[in-house]
Amino acid sequence: MATLFIADLHLCAEEPAITAGFLRFLAGEARQADALYILGDLFEAWIGDDDPNPLHAQIAAAIRTLVESGVPCYFIHGNRDFLLGKRFARESGMQLLPEEKVLNLYGKRVLIMHGDTLCTDDVGYQAFRAKVHQPWLQTLFLALPLFIRKRIAAKMRAGSQSANRVKDMAIMDVNPQAVAETLERHRVQHLIHGHTHRPAVHGLKANGEPAFRYVLGAWHTQGSMIKVTAESIELIAFAF
């Protein structure tokens, strides 16, 4: 058996091929897993569990079908869907996890996270992240009428795209020291994350020993998953 990890699908109505690929994945490969972990940015944007977007109901139903088949599904928030809440979790059957979680998988201790907190060189983003993760601000935002939330989200997204176009690509990647410190803080040698859209397996040193960082790819033109078994940890790309 195996445990599967995915991230950065960025599901939205404008990308039906990705949605179709995810639905096939849930009905196929995921059905054979011990568990499925979604490490953030499942959706392109999330402005509240009360958003009546038909796509949200479709995805919730598909995940619940997987869960009811006997495969538990876990979710760590990303930078696009950090407002996804308990209502959607109930509807989908997903279990919400903290932003950093250590798993014991087949004799391996594995740290999982979305990955944006590792990008410490992007000072502007980290300042923005700290602001929007304040509970009082999230409560205030979610209390606004839906049409106002949509306008704010669209404006923020446009601003983010504009800022990212002029940023050095290296700034938006993880900081090696932040990675090592995170591994050492949790006393683990394996880290799985998404966010950067740069699928790869990186070797490094942490806790005085060899360590490995596994980075999930985004689902732009193909699927990306990490499969953990008793024998190995594999990064796998596959067609939708």
Rank of each mutant, 00 (worst) to 15 (best):
V123D: 09
A2V: 08
Y74P: 00
T139G: 07
G223F: 01
I47D: 08
R109L: 07
P145W: 13
E184K: 04
S232Y: 00
A230I: 07
S69E: 00
D116Q: 11
W219C: 11
L118C: 05
W219A: 04
F82W: 06
L55M: 11
F25D: 14
A33I: 09
H186A: 08
G21V: 08
R151V: 13
Y37S: 00
P52G: 12
K101G: 05
L9I: 02
Y125R: 06
N164G: 03
I152V: 15
F128C: 01
E184G: 06
A237I: 01
G159H: 07
N207K: 03
S232M: 09
C73I: 02
A143G: 11
V123S: 09
L111W: 09
I18E: 08
F240V: 08
S69C: 00
L118E: 07
F147Y: 03
A153I: 14
I18A: 15
V71W: 06
G217R: 03
R213Q: 01
V67C: 13
D8R: 05
L118V: 05
L42H: 07
R109M: 05
D41L: 02
L84P: 07
L191T: 12
P176A: 08
D8W: 08
Q222V: 02
D41G: 08
I6A: 07
H56N: 06
A57Y: 08
I148F: 15
E29D: 11
